[in-house]
Design a protein around this nucleic acid. Sequence first.
RNA 1: GCGCCCGUAGCUCAGUGGAUAGAGCACUGGCCUCCGGAGCCAGGUGCGUAGGUUCGAUUCCUAUCGGGCGUACCA
Length: 557
Amino acid sequence: MSIITSKREEVYSEIKKALNKAKKKEILKFNVLPDFTVEVPRDKTHGDFATNIAMLLCKEVKMPPREVARILIENLENVDEWTEKVEIAGSGFINFHLGQKWLYKVLPYVIKEGENFGKSNVGQGKKIQLEYVSANPTGLLHMGNARGAALGDTLSNLLAAIGFNVTREFYINDAGNQIENFGKSLEARYFQLLGQKADFPEEGYHGEDVVATVKNIISEVGDKYLNVDSVLRREFLIQKGLEEKITNIKNDLARFGVEYDVWFSEQSLHDTGAIKRIIQELQDKDLIYEKEGALWFKTSQFGDNKDEVVVRANGIPTYFVADIAYHINKFERGFEKVINIWGADHHGHVARMKGAMKAQGYDEKKLDVIIMQLVRLLRDGDVVRMSKRSGQYITLSELIDEVGKDAARYFFIMRNPDSHLDFDLDLAKAESSDNPVYYVQYAHARIASILKASPEKIKNIELINFALLKEETELNLIRKIADYPEEITEAALNYEPHRLTRYAQDLASAFHSFYNSCRVLTDEKGLREARLGLVDATRITLRNLLLLIGVSAPERM
RNA sequence: GCGCCCGUAGCUCAGUGGAUAGAGCACUGGCCUCCGGAGCCAGGUGCGUAGGUUCGAUUCCUAUCGGGCGUACCA
């Protein structure tokens, strides 16, 4: 429990106590206590915490809000012990000024916690699963996959930090139509590279990477498969091709700092009969009918706007039913929460997947789908057009080469997933103040060099007199640090990783301001030690934060 | 047509049922004999439009306009 959270709760419960006291005395007459807020006001002159309770209550008690506020304040107990000043402001806000004492407790707490600062047990060890990227293994990872990777990994880190037991998972679409297509493409390239005539399938994968894959296969087995049965040849090429593609995907993601606990194969759902089982179960529930030779699932009964095919007329199950089987599998593994990160082009899939879970007797509320909008790439101010089919796209690997892992990850989580993302390659590459990543990392490097230049190391934080920190920039920095645990919790629970970059910016800014107005390594020993403590607490916070985002915290730049 | 997301500063984006709506970039001017100037300080414009709910709406609801995506026996 962080200091600021406990402080807020203290204020909250004191207000409640006062209200109940006034109610008992029949000065305020109300039935149910409204759901009021206690928040840190935007404007510092409005104190450390503010509540809107008076405005919410005014109607029921039939008094002007400021009058309600006055009564409430009168009924607060031992106000002087925990506040410096309580005032009524604006149309009826009550502002609590707590003084600075509690702020000084923040720093020793942070230093003692170290890398645990910000962590909590809000999640209580509950099992939670995140599935992200899950790109088709028929090609390389593109910008959209990269955004999903950065978001998914950061969100996983966040949830783990607040005490959830997180499983990170990649679903490999190694079955279905696109694999057939992949096989045809490989086969055509195989013929072509061996000097044979072959038409390349129109719907095939035109990318250069497919050519490279086939070249690798040829260097291994030569023309051995030129004259075998086409079915066997394709089977072999697909197996080899998938192996290489999946290895590539794993390597690229690893370079991006993204590691998975589970790589789940779609094919395995066919092999184990899980898909057949689902279809049977749906049939038993009378949720399946036949039309034009295909089997349809009555998804419209569950909020979808039309029914969906689960088995095609040619007898091959669709991606949809495989995905249902996969999600049932997730629930069977006992996750209390299942989170998917999908691109906006899959949003139509959400309602029917939830419907399918409901049809199978699972609580669809346990399935959260984060839809992220698509990425647009900008170079020299122009949009770079991308298309996977045509093979024209910038890969994750190329992106890392060009702008580096740190900048790429930072940029991807800077935006709300709901927002379209314009990825400005030139800005991401800029080694200047324009680049928000450097701005934050610079603060960390600067701290490292102060600590290095310091004549003494902090040994016993108990002996430091933090009350010597009285400058406005010092107090601002402490307040910002104190916000950190709450920021982490909010970002995690609301699935909002982008809050982290904003906070990072603010924290770095508060530090730079402090640095410019206060000399750390001053001759006064007491003040120097207090400031070193402040600097160290800033370092710990910055470092923990960057770690969550998957960006390095450099000692030097 | 229908469904989902978005519309906030010149640009890229945060944010909130409440008190003066923020940040970065861009533009202008200042700041190191001293811990890293990749820094700091100062400067100004905006919630697409129209209704409704509310003590209070940029936020919630409805309509409308604009952009993206979906609406496959692709995934």
